[in-house]
């Protein structure tokens, strides 16, 4: 564990708490892509079911339980409790365009051709693009509530912090995880446009609005 990874994980944790706070206080999931949230459930279940056969630390296990539990809870809130506030007509990204390529990539790029390792690779690839339906929705509506942008910023910062973590681990432990690093760089790259608007507008007190 190093500071980059710890701060990254805390940022990830914070992003989910911000999202829950947004949904609970506004009693609405307006502006949140159900598809992205469903993809995160798939990512966490595919990757963190190793809870049952791989023990790393209490920290690691507790985070895994939290991420699986909270992502399922968010889906429940969107699908049932606040269903009327969820507008599928603007959540139109075709997720099969993400699922199929990720499935194929995970069959080609994995560390061992066995179901658990293929699932692990699949989850890494899928996580890297799971935010696309959300960003696509943002692009379509052209604006977002401030709190939704804080959620996205925390999520993006989590991924960005994993990059110095890998560099640090390469020099201190001599390890490198090419699959995670490649997917992680792609994932962070997807946030660059968003970060630009977030740091130049939202953090200056302006509304999050994309140029028409």
């Amino acid at each position: 564990m190093n500071l980059f990874r710890l701060l990254g994980d805390l940022s990830h944790l914070a992003s989910i708490l911000v999202l829950l706070h947004k949904i609970q206080t506004s009693r609405s999931c307006r502006g949140i892509s159900f598809k992205t949230q469903a993809l995160y459930v798939a990512v966490f279940v595919a990757r963190y079911l190793d809870l049952f056969w791989r023990y790393i630390s209490l920290y690691n296990s507790a985070m895994k339980v939290f991420f699986i539990g909270s992502s399922c809870y968010i889906l429940y809130l969107m699908k049932y409790r606040y269903r009327p506030t969820n507008d599928p007509s603007i959540d139109t990204f075709r997720i099969e365009y993400l699922l199929v390529p990720c499935a194929i990539l995970s069959l080609i790029f994995n560390y061992n051709f066995m179901p658990t390792e293929i699932l692990w690779s699949f989850s890494i690839f899928l996580e890297s693009v799971a935010i696309l339906p959300q960003l696509f929705m943002l692009q379509r509506t052209g604006e977002a509530e401030a709190i939704t942008t804080h959620y996205l910023a925390a999520l993006g910062i989590y991924r960005a912090l994993y990059i110095p973590n890998w560099i640090y681990r390469y020099f201190t432990e001599g390890v490198i995880d090419p699959i995670a690093v490649t997917a992680g760089i792609v994932q962070t790259g997807l946030y660059l446009d968003f970060f630009y608007v977030y740091f130049t507008k939202v953090l200056q007190g302006q509304k999050f609005e994309l140029p028409a």
Binding site: R5, D9, H12, R54, I56, N60, F67, G174, V175, P178
Partner: peptide
């Protein structure tokens, strides 16, 4: 080539 990590990250 350095060894691959043991999936110890989240």
């Amino acid at each position: 080539v350095p060894p691959v990590q043991a999936h110890d990250e989240l």
